[in-house]
């Protein structure tokens, strides 16, 4: 390694605009400047948001979803018929979409437009309530399951018992013995699905439970509630959001399946599943009966699926490069 030629005094003075004496004199030391130079600016949530916006497909689908959701209210308002006052009229059955009946009429001659949009609202409402319920129950129980060593065995066995019997059997029993209203449906789905969320949360809590910062909290006598809410949950938020996002399409799909089989909501509360079920006998002759609800189910499902995945990528710190 050769040493470079040193600039002459004249060159240095010209370049830096200070005299030789000034240049080669000691300057005052500032301890605070020394503390400050290593500062880095990085915010986790900002990075998550920025990465999420990079995924164009997910962003577009989310906009489409909200458009559909808002439009479902507008559509009922501008529609010519009110869902509550539909009168079956066999003379009007199976009318293809026209200027009077924008989505045509069903086998009983009722306007299909208001049924489809009302069903959209019902399904989304159901999915949202279930997601919220699952989230609350799953996170609460998952945290206790993961953090309290003594509770682990109990919840694990409970999970095994529930998980080893197919959900469909429970659902059939509930539909037959308890009923088929909207709220029973919500409750039963939450009751059998919280544990997947809980299991997931429990595994994550396990990961963080014995980190040094939690030991420090134990040393300081922090109580269980505060450790969970302040030390552990903030780390899990991205995973919880992802689970909630993915639970929405799966609830809609489950509702559709159950209703299609006749185990879901009763026939008089239209949900997208019920519409699909009602149309199954006629759709070969009148395909529009199937197409309208099917398109909406697909759009909602795909939206949350894409958005969920985009979010999980965005939330991974390894992608914050």
């Amino acid at each position: 390694m050769e040493t470079k030629a040193v600039n002459t005094t004249a060159e240095l003075e010209k370049e830096l605009g200070m005299s030789e004496q000034e240049l080669f004199s000691f300057v005052e030391y500032h301890a605070e400047d020394a503390e400050r130079i290593g500062y880095s600016e990085y915010s986790y949530w900002k990075s998550v948001f920025r990465n999420f916006l990079k995924n164009k497909a997910a962003v577009v689908m989310i906009i489409v979803f909200f458009a559909i959701f808002i439009f479902s209210f507008v559509a009922l308002w501008i529609g010519k018929y009110d869902y509550q006052h539909l009168i079956p009229d066999t003379n009007l059955c199976f009318q293809s979409p026209n200027s009077e009946y924008w989505f045509g009429t069903d086998n009983l001659g009722r306007d299909y437009w208001c049924q489809v949009w009302y069903a959209t609202q019902t399904s989304i409402k159901l999915a949202a309530i279930v997601a919220l319920g699952e989230c609350l129950m799953g996170v609460t129980i998952g945290c206790i399951w993961g953090y309290v060593r003594k509770a682990d065995r109990f919840f694990t066995e409970l999970y095994n018992i529930f998980d080893s019997v197919p959900t469909m059997i429970y659902m059939t029993l509930i539909a037959l013995f308890i009923g088929q209203t909207f709220w029973i449906m919500c409750a039963s789905i939450i009751l059998f699905h919280w544990m997947y969320m809980a299991k997931n949360v429990r595994n994550l809590v396990f990961m963080y439970r014995d980190r040094e910062y939690n030991l420090a909290s134990r040393c300081l006598g922090t109580n269980l509630f505060r450790i969970l809410t302040k030390n552990i949950l903030p780390y899990l938020i991205s995973v919880i959001i992802l689970r909630v996002a993915l639970s929405i399409p799966s609830t809609i799909a489950l509702e559709t399946t159950l209703s299609y089989l006749g185990l879901g909501l009763d026939v008089n509360t239209p949900s997208l599943g019920i519409l699909l079920r009602n149309s199954r006998t006629f759709f070969l002759d009148y395909p529009y009966l199937l197409i309208f609800p099917a398109v909406i189910v697909s759009l909602v499902t795909i939206t949350f699926y894409l958005a969920g995945n985009a979010f999980s990528d965005a939330a991974d710190p390894r992608n914050h490069v």
């Binding site: 040193v6 000691f26 030391y29």
Partner: peptide
């Protein structure tokens, strides 16, 4: 910035070997 005996020129120009 961390040197208690820094010279003024240290802040202005990179020293050579």
């Amino acid at each position: 910035p961390r040197n208690r005996q820094a010279l003024a020129i240290d802040f202005k120009k990179e020293p050579p070997f």
